[in-house]
Design a protein around this nucleic acid. Sequence first.
DNA 1: CATGCCCCCTGCACGC
DNA 2: TGCGTGCAGGGGGCAT
Length: 293
Amino acid sequence: MPELPEVETVRRGLLPVLQGAVIESAEARRPDLRWPLPDNFVERLAGRRVEAVGRRAKYLLADLDGGEVLILHLGMSGSIRIEGAAVKGRPGLFHHPRAEPGAHDHVVFHLAGGATITFNDPRRFGAMLLVPYDHMDSHPLLRSLGPEPLGNTFHAEYLAKALAGRRTTLKAALLDQKLVAGLGNIYVCEALHRAHLSPLRLAGTLATKTGAPTAEAEALVAAIRDVLRAAILAGGSSLRDHKQVNGELGYFQHAFKVYDREGAPCPTFHCKGHVQRIVQGGRSTFYCASCQR
DNA sequence: CATGCCCCCTGCACGC
DNA sequence: TGCGTGCAGGGGGCAT
């Protein structure tokens, strides 16, 4: 499920329940996800208070008292659900009642007060790590990440410079988390369509010799920011069975212009083209060859 | 360093 | 119905 908007949606859903909460105990129902769980995982979490719930790229970051950060990645199929908690600001309203753990419920956090937070991940491409807060930025998984696409340092000048000299396609460049962090297959396709840029364009052609940002780089930055913001407002995208932490579906998938819409008429105003599917780097790309150049 | 390919794993949709 | 195939939101590791 999870690209930046989905991870941000999870973060926002966790915030009212998890921030300030104490993890009474943690339950590891198997020893590994993508990698083995951290040594003494359960012991290191027991009794810890969650001071803050942040996000970097597609990583969720739970700052714990005691100086460690729980880093959590949802991989391709990871999801989180909250059960047994009151909904903040809505007296009498609760998340779903607690249920017994089911298939692919790999880690369960039991919070003081009775709520549980369950990590489910059928494919187990997700991950959990515990790292000292002071070493977080230098952790191998985080240290090479590019700027946040919704942050102040991601602008046309940066993008033009970052793309300069790249000999790969725009699609591959935008999927590269070192260039900009948080985009995945869906939102790259959607952003390129909004910017009317072809996923096959050579990335370097959006840069200039002088280093001045091009109109195309401006358009691409705007498209990326717009589509991510809109998706976050919609609660992310729910493909297959993925849900928000409260069990509700996101609904941005209904706003997809090209992703998974092979054969559909291009939604661009006055465009006569159709959405086509090609394969780049082994992954599907959806675009309109007529209005994306 | 940059690039492209393989792989990890499970579930599901599809065609026969 | 059953079975084989291909595909799925990510990204580390490796060869080139």
